[in-house]
Amino acid sequence: MLIQEGDKRTPATDLMLASILAFVAGGVNSAGYMAYRYFSANMTGNVSMASELIAISQLDAALGFLAIVMAFILGAFLASILIEIGKRHKRDNIYALTLIVEAGLLLLVGLAFALSAHPPNGILMVGLLAVTMGIQNAASTRISGSRVRTTHVSGVATDLGVGFAMLLSRSSSVEKAVTVLRLKLNLATIAFFAMGGVLGVLGFQLLGGMTFCVFAMPLIVLSVRYLR
C-alpha cells in the first residue's frame, strides 16, 4: 500500500489508503477544533476567515488563520522534500517514513496537552496539526498520482458531482467503469473523513488532547510493516 506509486497501484489499494488517511484527517480536524476553534485541515475556510478579518481590520486574528495556512504549506513542502531525498537514496519505504513523521507530530501534540499544566498555545498546536495535515495530503497525493487527497473534501465533493454527471453521459462502458471506481474512492474519502470527525469530537470529550495520540495509531500500524 505504501510502496507502489501512480498507475502501478490498484483501485483497492487506493481505496484502503484513502479510507485510513481520511479517517485520521477527519479526527484530527474535529479534535483540533474542539480544542481551539481552529480547523487544521480546512484551508479554504481558514483563507476565507483571514480575508473576512482583514476586511474588518482584525489583523491579529487574521494572521493566526494565515499562519495555519502557511503551516499546512510547510507540511506539504517538508513531505515532498523528504520523499525526494528518499527516492534519491532508493528508499522504497519513504512514504511509510513520511507517515511516521506525521504520527510523531501527532504524538507530540497529544503529549503536550497531557503533560502541560496549562493549555498549550493555540496557534502553535493547531499549526503543528496543520503541518501533519500538509504532510499527509502531500504524501497521499504523490503516491497515488493525485487520485487520493484525504484532507481536501471540497475537491472530493466536486469530483463526486462531476462523476455522477459522467455516469449520465454517453460514455463507453470502460469509461463508466473507471468513473464508478473514482466515485467509490471519493465516497469513501468523504464517509471516513466524517466518521473520523465524529470520533474526534467524542474522543476529545473523553480523552482531551490524548485524542491526537489515538489518531496517530492508525498511521503507525499502517507504516510499521514497511520500516524494515
Rank of each mutant, 00 (worst) to 15 (best):
residue 3 I to N: 05
residue 5 E to C: 08
residue 7 D to C: 10
residue 9 R to A: 07
residue 13 T to R: 12
residue 15 L to N: 10
residue 16 M to N: 09
residue 18 A to I: 01
residue 21 L to G: 07
residue 22 A to C: 09
residue 27 G to E: 06
residue 33 Y to K: 00
residue 34 M to N: 09
residue 35 A to S: 15
residue 37 R to D: 13
residue 38 Y to N: 04
residue 41 A to Q: 02
residue 43 M to R: 03
residue 45 G to I: 08
residue 46 N to P: 01
residue 49 M to V: 10
residue 56 I to Q: 09
residue 58 Q to P: 02
residue 62 A to S: 13
residue 63 L to M: 13
residue 84 E to R: 10
residue 86 G to M: 08
residue 87 K to H: 14
residue 94 I to K: 05
residue 98 T to G: 08
residue 99 L to F: 14
residue 103 A to D: 01
residue 104 G to I: 03
residue 107 L to I: 15
residue 113 F to R: 02
residue 115 L to M: 11
residue 116 S to G: 10
residue 123 I to M: 06
residue 124 L to D: 01
residue 129 L to E: 00
residue 130 A to N: 01
residue 131 V to T: 08
residue 131 V to Y: 02
residue 135 I to L: 15
residue 138 A to D: 03
residue 141 T to G: 12
residue 141 T to I: 07
residue 143 I to D: 02
residue 151 T to I: 12
residue 153 V to N: 03
residue 155 G to A: 09
residue 157 A to Q: 07
residue 158 T to R: 07
residue 159 D to Q: 12
residue 162 V to D: 02
residue 162 V to K: 05
residue 167 L to V: 08
residue 168 L to G: 12
residue 169 S to V: 08
residue 170 R to H: 15
residue 176 K to W: 04
residue 181 L to Q: 15
residue 189 T to I: 12
residue 189 T to A: 07
residue 190 I to L: 14
residue 194 A to T: 11
residue 206 L to C: 09
residue 206 L to S: 15
residue 210 M to S: 11
residue 216 A to F: 08
residue 223 S to V: 07
residue 226 Y to N: 10
residue 228 R to I: 10
